[in-house]
Design a protein around this nucleic acid. Sequence first.
DNA 1: TAAAAAATACATTTTATCAGGTATTGTTCT
DNA 2: AGAACAATACCTGATAAAATGTATTTTTTA
Lengths: 211, 211
Amino acid sequence: MIMKYKTVIVDDHPIVISGISGLLSDLDNIEIVDKFESGIALLDYIEDNKVDLILMDIFLPVINGVDLCKTIKQKHPRIVIIGMSSQSERSLVMQFIQNGGNGYILKNASFDEFKECIYKAIEGEIVFSEEVKTIISQPLSEDLERIPGLSRRERDIALLLSQGKSTQEIADDLFLSFLTVQTHRRNILQKYKMKNVAELIAFLLKNNMLN
Amino acid sequence: MIMKYKTVIVDDHPIVISGISGLLSDLDNIEIVDKFESGIALLDYIEDNKVDLILMDIFLPVINGVDLCKTIKQKHPRIVIIGMSSQSERSLVMQFIQNGGNGYILKNASFDEFKECIYKAIEGEIVFSEEVKTIISQPLSEDLERIPGLSRRERDIALLLSQGKSTQEIADDLFLSFLTVQTHRRNILQKYKMKNVAELIAFLLKNNMLN
DNA sequence: TAAAAAATACATTTTATCAGGTATTGTTCT
DNA sequence: AGAACAATACCTGATAAAATGTATTTTTTA
């Protein structure tokens, strides 16, 4: 009897689950043991069942794929995890891999790409579909990248600023001194070389750095 | 012999195409005649072939689904077109329907939802999956809708505000008095009941009212 | 465990914004 | 022709933000 890789699919789109199932049914050493629409359900499942390979969407409700991957890998480092998404950013892919992910595939990949990636991943390689490769190799050249990123506290404050809160209101909301919030505001403005909060909020929203 | 609805799927994700194919194969009066990964290929196809139903992704390369729908409906108003996407905004759905779309389904819809929507659409109804319904029904109930819209001058000023310009700088840029700009600022803030420019910019950007 | 980064806090001066009220001159639509 | 809206402009007082300089504690990471 041949050992088959026990495989689980996690995606909140039923059609995608069905599509991947169809695809994987062609591969004779892969056995789909279950499908989930959320990460929580998956976490429960892997505590009680043997799983070798997980194909997961990155944009999931409740827990996102990047965090989910980290959580799983901490307890079950041997499980091979491949991330998937429709569109992707460089930083997201890198974060996923840093959290132990074994590969990343864009959903517009061809069936052959999918199959090849899955095969290589279970053989121990870190795999990327074609478009992901171009994404992660390109944008380092432009200086558009290398945006420092807000700290958690800074993000909290930026978010409240975007809601029209004043320094005092933010201080009250976060139980901080007025002066502390003032310092954070200044640091954020300086970090991105913004003239005022209006420009800052526009910048953060355009770069999806808020929420 | 039973007449089957000649159906075409357009999606740039092979897995999704496969998933929908699987789903539709359960429906015995639907016949999938072809699948495309771009709108251009579809436009060529429908010139030479009979098509009754099209299921199309809204986010497609080259031509987006909303425009594609419009183009098709102008020449072939009888073809039933259902739009699909992973996430959605109210305005996008409304635009699709205004362009002649016969329905809109979110990809996280269940199989049953999919089937029901397709059946109802070919019977002439305008159909939405559950989550789409909540999206399009929510903001109308609140007074969030009925957004007055900026005048040209107000938009000019809002745009410059989002670029971090001060009242004086804007006045200089537009050859206006400082006091005029001040009045416009106030009017804009009052119109949307915003506390300050930061909140205003966040609001305008989230509602695509700038640019 | 040492260094770096983040979070906290204080004080002051200058400048800008916000909120209030008012008013004239164009446009645009009915 | 008249109403409604848009754009222009002025004044002022209260408040808030921005710029500058400094410093301690906590947390994270190399």
